[in-house]
Each structure stands twice: as C-alpha cells, then as structure tokens.
Nucleic acid binder design. Structure first.
Lengths: 211, 211, 211, 211
DNA sequence: GATGAATGAGCGTTCATTCAT
DNA sequence: AATGAATGAACGCTCATTCAT
C-alpha cells in the first residue's frame, strides 16, 4: 500500500506530464487524488517541494544503473545502456524538459538543486565518454570538443521529445525517435571497434525496426 | 519615433526574455511602458496576439537573409550564413525556445502558426542541406539520416541557449557558445571542400577566439 | 442618404435587439457601422442618449396612428388598430421590453423619460378603452377593473415576445403568437356589437390562419 | 447558524433583487458579506452557479405546496393557493423576472435549466387549469385558448411586479397589486360555482382591502 | 465631421498558502 | 493524518468616455 505522500508524487507527476507543472494547481492534484488540499500541504510544505521531490526521483532513475557500473575499471561498451536509461527517464519525467527554464525561474530552491545535479550529470557523462575514448569505442577529441559533444548530447537527450511533440501528438511514435536522434549524434564519433560490438548491432537492428 | 504598438512589442519581448512570457502579465508590460492597460488592449486584442506578432517578427528575422539567397542555382557555402542568422534570431527571441512547449499548450492560435512555421522551417533547412550535399560541402546521407540531422540541428540551434543559461548567467558568454554547439554538430558531415573554403576558416578563427 | 446619426441609431437598434443594449458596447456599434468611436461620441454625448433617442422613436411609432384617430368623436372600433400598431412597435424595438427594468436601473435620464411616457401611454390606452366602452364595443367596468385591465394589456403586449422567445427561437412564429395573447386577453370584455364588427371577423380569420 | 454558502446565497439574492444580477459583481457580494473573494469562489465555482442555485430555490418554493396537493383526485378550488404561492415566490425572487431574457443570453447553463423548468411549470399549470375545468370552477375552453390562457397567466404572474415598479417605488404596495392582476385575468373564466366558493369570497375581501 | 489613441475603474476568476479543528 | 474554510494578490480582459488632431 502506497503512502499518501507517494500517491501525491505519483499523481503530481502524471498531471505535470499532461499539462505542465506550471499549469497544474495544487488543488488539482489534491482533487484528482481525492484528498483535501490541507492534507497535501501537510505532506509538502509547498508546491516547490513536490517538484523537488519528483526531481530527486528523476535523478535517481537517471543514475541508478549507471552508478552500478564500475566503468572505471572494466572495458565495457556503455552507449547502449546510456541510451536506454536516459531515454526511459526523460520520457517518464518529460515535463521537466518541457519547462525546465521556467521552473528554474519560478522555483529558486529547485534551481539550486537542478544546477548541482546538472554539473554532476555532465561530469558523469564526460567521465563516461572519456572512458569510452580510453577503451577505443569513441574517437579521441580535444577538451573543448568533449565539452561541446557532451552538451549537445545532453540537449538532444532532454529536448528531442519536445521537438517531436511539436510535430505530432503520437506520443509513442515520438519517443521512439528519441533513440535515432541520439544515435546519429554519436555515430560520427564511433570507432571501428564500436561497430564490431554486438551492442551496436543490437541498436542498429532496433533502429532499423523503427523506420 | 516608434509607435505605441511597436513600443509594446519591444517591451514585451524584453520582459518575455527576462522572465518568460507566461510569467509576464499584460499589466506588467503596460506599467513598464508607462501606458494604461486599456491602451495596451486597444493595440492588441489579447496577450496571445502580442505573442503571435513577436513570433512573426522572429520568423521574418530567421528567414530574411536565407530567402534572399538563390541557392538553388549558385554554388555557395551556406553554413556560415545559417549559423549567423539563426543564432542571432534565437538569441533575440530566446524566450520562445525557453517555454515553447508551454506556449503551445496555452495559446491555441499560436500553436497553429507555430506548427505551420516549423514545417516550413524544417523543409527549408532540408533543402539547404541537400543543396550543400549536391555541391559537395556536406557528405551525402540517407533520407532518414537527413531527417535526423535536421532535427538535431534545429534542437541544438534553438535549445542550446537554454542549456548554457542553466550553467551560467553570463549571457554574452553563453550566446557565444551557441556557435560551438552548432559547429561541432555539423563538423563531422563537412567535406574536404568545406574545410578548404574561406568561410570555414573564418568560423574556426572566430570559434578559436571564443575559447 | 442617411446621416451618420441616423445610421448609428439604426445599427444600435439592430445590435440591441440581437444581444441586448447592456450587452452591446459603444465600440461594437461604431465598428459594425465602420466609423470611429470618436465619431460616435461626436453625435451622441453618451450611450444613454443613444438609448433615449431610440426610445423616442419607439414612442413615436407607438402613437403615430393612434394620435391620428379623432376617437373622441367618432364611433370606431379601435381594437384592430391597437393590436396592429402596438405589436409592430413592440417587435421592432423588442430589446426595450427584454431589459426594461435593468435599463431603468442603469440609465437615470432614460428612467425619467420612460416613466413620463408610461404614464402618458397608460392614460391614452385608458382613454381608448373608455371610448370603446362608451360606444358599446367593450363591456363597462369599474375604475379599478379598468386600471387592472389596462395594466394587464400593457404587460401582455410588451412581455409576450420575451415569453415565447424563452420557448422557441423561431422569431417569426413567436411574433405571430403575440396577437393571440392580446386577443384572448381582451376577448372576455368584447360585447355582442364587437363580434358583429367586420374588424373582429378579420382578426378571427387572421388568428385562425396562425394556428 | 447559517453556513457561509447559505449566507452567500442570501446576500446574492438581496443584491440581485436590489440592483439586478448583471449589475452585481461577485466582489460586491463578498464585500457585503465580509468575506474574501477567494472564499466566495471556494463555495461557488462561478457566478452562474450562484444564479443557478438561487433559481433552484425559486423552483422549489414555486412548487412546494402545489406538489403536495393531490389535485387529480380531489375536488378542490386551487386558485387561491396558486395565487398565494406564485406571488410569494415571484416577489422573493423578483430579479429573475426583471432580467430573465438577459440572464438566459449570458448564462448558457442557466438557460438550459430555465427552459426545462419553464416547460415543466407550464405543463403543471395546464394540468391545474384542466382540473379546475373538470370540476366546474373554470369554464371549458379549446386547447388553443388554454395555451394562451396559461401563457397570459404566466406572463402576468411573473411580469406584473416589473410593471408596478416602473410606476412606483413603494414595493409593498406594488406587490399587493400583483394579486389584482392575476385575479382579474382569471375572473372572466370563473364559473358560478367558483363565485359561491368561500375561497373566492376570501380573495374578494382581501382584494377589496387593498384598494 | 471625423479619427483613433488613451484612460482607469471594474469584472470574473485562479492560485498558493494558512490554520483552526 | 486529515479536513476544508478562508485569504488576498494577481491575472486577462472590457468598457464608457475623453481629447488632441
């Protein structure tokens, strides 16, 4: 049995994804859940803290599997995992990317946490890419190029859903395209070794099936 | 001497970029401009029509120079132009990309215009890329790859400012980085012929100066 | 060629009948007419004076034909005329009766004129009825009964359109029923002499054709 | 102790009768009641729902006593009851009739309910008149005449207050006259049996005292 | 005669949040 | 834990009217 707090977060996420966090009132969350507005404020001191708690969930999902990997030591091809994990989270918490800049403007505490997380996430991705370069999966590049490659990856990973949603309302179809965006962004940097890796073949097969 | 209508658009754009369109009230625009709220509504029938008029300006800026090019016939290297124009507009009207998805949710008439424009813009970019491929500036690619390349370009061009703003408030510095994002996205697809072109040398010099 | 002032009155009446005077803005009148709002206020010092001028037209129409009758001297059967004239005016200026009480509340100058007119109209109707009694078309009645008979007649004549419009939007059909309401209200008071009058036969034929 | 909701309805009715529903702002209601505007909207989702709730009260008052009568079986003289009940409600909720047509124009949900109620009310009155005819209190008449008689009765019952208010502001005096309007409207249709009924004598006595 | 920019009070409504119970 | 009444600032917008040109 879920606690009330958990159910609030669940419903809030649902509504945020549907209409945006800024378009969702606390009263609406409480009503949809069938609890009083007073009870909602008993569990969360304000709307921002609901947002922050959801954001913490998001962070956890993003890094859960990646953290498990001891990629510093092992020679593993991480692209597939990265693709799968990031897309999953970015779909589940898609409202975050739809209105991230406004959220940061409106919720100062959220802004702080968001910034901390972003720095950490970017460092993690950079570390991951460096690892892949070291083991020859990705071509080597300058520090500047790495910075830009990572920023482009982050932007594409988080924003492509917004893009496709502008073009079509077929949500399922759109989310599939996310994989293509990331794959083709990364592809020019893949080495021969990568293309010989079974994971890449899996990915290419999967992407082939989308088209 | 500017007309009141122009001044409203000017101040509105300023405030939209500062705090977001959704966070800017019509009363606030009027107050900052020193006119009555009634006067604002004399010039614009509602907030959405202010947004739409600003969006139409944006469209014009985006396409003004590109439209002038008779690129179907001439063999010209367009990347530099494209970089310059799109970045200029995307900075000047940056609020648009910061909250595009929410704007589309909240303003149905804007949504329609936005969608029409987006289709047209993407086709234009595709045509431009095909032209560059034809004249050997960009490596040839499949139709799918072209689609994804264009979508990635659009996403990076419109969203990179949001990204950098999350990391730093140095607005000038951030806007410079936009060029890097697009350049490195495109770079893997440039041919030898491109690298011999003087424009590319200009770009590389410019980018070098940023770092 | 109509003067601007006349055209304002014309369009105002049209809009008042369509949506009510209180739901019609002065701007709307000017726009529909294709003149500036300033020009409208050049011709009328305020909205109330438009209303009053229209009301004066109404009064004129109501009494034009009745005034022509020298009914004090002639033995004439006036019911038919009264039916025809009052219904015609009450249809043409139907907005007046739809919102008379609110108009009186909102427009003090109109209120005064309205009250004066109402007293005069009621006295006229009373005189008319007394004349019909004197010449044996209508059964004699006490002064109280006469008062009430006249008030009922006025209420039915002015309000029946509102009633039928609540039940159906077929405006033409509804206006026909007005005649029935008045006829059946008066009928119990008609004498044998009335029923032998050709006018009554005309009326009965006309009413028969409605059903 | 009245609930806030009840007090809102109470004050709203008071203000509506005083100045008209359309001339009464929600803010005005809240202020007169000494509550915040937010609280008013906590209890009613919009102004229309206040109007509708008041209208439902009106319906209840109109039909409360009439519904209790098992007039299909008993031979009873209903005129007195009808007079008393309808006048009481039409005075208490007099704003309704002062601006009914505008209310219907401005409040679509109210319009629907109003129309349903009107049809039901008219059928009820018709049934009541048919019963009185059956038991010999009212002279028999054709179906058409019945329709018109009922429509005239409804118009007089609901509109006579508006009429008298145009002539005088003595509210109490005016409301007494309502009874006269209805009585004299009905009188021509009363049979000898009616005039022998004690209720009629009561009415005549009451009316006599008014004059 | 005519234009149209400008005013500002007011309207219906929403919303995050508080607090006594 | 939970209820739900209450607050009040703010929002988008309308309207009759004025006035310089």
């Amino acid at each position: 049995m879920r606690t009330t707090k958990e159910r609030i977060l669940e419903i809030a996420l649902e509504l945020f994804n549907e209409k945006g966090c800024l378009n969702t009132s606390t009263r609406h969350i409480a009503e949809k859940l069938g609890i009083s507005i007073g009870n909602l404020y008993y569990h969360f001191k304000n709307k921002e803290s609901i947002l922050i708690e959801i954001f913490n969930e998001y962070i956890e999902v993003v890094f859960k599997k990646i953290k498990e990997l001891d990629y510093e030591k092992d020679e593993i091809f991480l692209l597939k995992q990265f693709l799968a994990d990031s897309i999953e989270a970015d779909i589940k918490y898609r409202f975050l990317h739809l209105e991230l800049n406004l959220l940061v403007m409106n919720f100062p505490a959220f802004k702080k946490i968001m910034e901390q997380h972003l720095h950490f996430e970017l460092e993690t991705i950079k570390g991951l890419v460096r690892h892949q370069i070291k083991y020859g999966y990705i071509t080597s590049m300058s520090e500047l190029e790495l910075d830009i490659f990572v920023s482009n990856s982050w932007i594409i990973a988080t924003q492509n859903a917004s893009y496709w949603n502008l073009l079509s309302e077929d949500f399922i179809e759109n989310s599939k395209k996310a994989a293509l965006n990331i794959y083709f962004l990364v592809k020019p940097y893949l080495t021969q070794k990568s293309f010989e890796n079974d994971d890449i073949k899996d990915i290419e097969n999967f992407l082939g099936s989308i088209i």
